[in-house]
């Protein structure tokens, strides 16, 4: 059987909110090392990769590898019934066709069990090669969210450029143009407010803002976001999940024909 008890249940709620509009159905791959998920959006432009390590759970048991086929909208409906401070336990039998979500209130005076039907999903896993990215930028996740949202009101695509000075986001549309530059800034008091640029070579790529906007639904998971870019490769937008792993989004660039 599989069982995972997560003291900070809100993390799972946040993960679902971050991906439920991008991916419809996906397998949660459970093994003794944790829970992993990889799924493309329906247009096959973006890829989501989630890792929740066993060590981040208060209790974790997985006797044999299981692929739990889940409709994310339905799982989101179930998790919305958990309080933000609740402990969430996931349970599934090896041969079962359901998953149980148990919610425990912080002072243990309310215990809820929700059972959800699983589905059979043929999932195709893509191999993501280890890449030495030309540019890696870490910045406040709320700032990234703000920039992407602001640019979305002006254009459909953004050019993201990184030089040793910083990262720039540009767009254009019927009403005009916009360009935002965030400079490397390591002299701020709080580490989470820093913007750091690690660069081997300047890089500039074009992406659909609609997807970037969707990724920023993960902002609540982490105060910082890391953007990794290389010429003619998908951008990686990574939100680290404290003590547990990460939620990464890969987005294919738009490329000049």
């Amino acid at each position: 059987m599989f069982e995972g008890r997560l003291l900070q249940g809100s993390l799972l709620k946040k993960v679902l909110e971050a991906i439920k509009d991008l991916v419809t159905d996906t397998n949660f791959d459970c093994s003794e090392t944790g829970i992993a998920l990889q799924a493309m959006d329906s247009s096959h432009v973006a890829l989501v990769s989630l890792l929740l390590k066993d060590t981040g759970f208060d209790h974790f048991r997985c006797d044999r590898n299981l692929a739990l086929g889940i409709n994310l909208q339905n799982m989101s409906k179930m998790l919305k019934c958990a309080g933000n401070d609740d402990i969430i336990t996931l349970k599934a039998e090896d041969e079962g066709d359901t998953i149980t979500f148990m919610f425990e209130s912080p002072n243990q005076d309310k215990i809820s069990d929700f059972e959800m039907k699983l589905m059979d999903i043929d999932s195709e896993h893509l191999g993501i090669p280890d890449t030495d990215y030309q540019a890696i930028v870490t910045m406040p996740s709320a700032e990234f969210q703000r920039i992407v949202r602001d640019l979305s009101s002006i254009g459909d695509t953004a050019v993201i450029g990184v030089t040793k000075e910083g990262i720039s986001f540009s767009t254009g549309g019927d009403i005009g143009k916009a360009n935002i530059v965030c400079r490397q800034n390591t002299n701020v008091d709080k580490e989470e407010d820093q913007t750091t640029v690690e660069i081997h070579e300047p890089v500039s790529l074009t992406f659909a803002l609609r997807y970037l906007n969707s990724f920023t639904k993960a902002t609540a998971l982490s105060p910082q976001v890391t953007l990794s870019l290389s010429k003619e490769l998908p951008i990686v937008v990574e939100y680290k999940i404290e003590k547990m792993g990460f939620l990464r989004f890969y987005l294919a660039p738009k490329i000049e024909e």
Partner: peptide, 14 residues
């Protein structure tokens, strides 16, 4: 013009 590439043109099936 620019065209949107698909993600599986970069990452091959495992």
């Amino acid at each position: 013009g620019v065209s949107q590439r698909s993600i599986n043109s970069f990452f091959a099936p495992k």
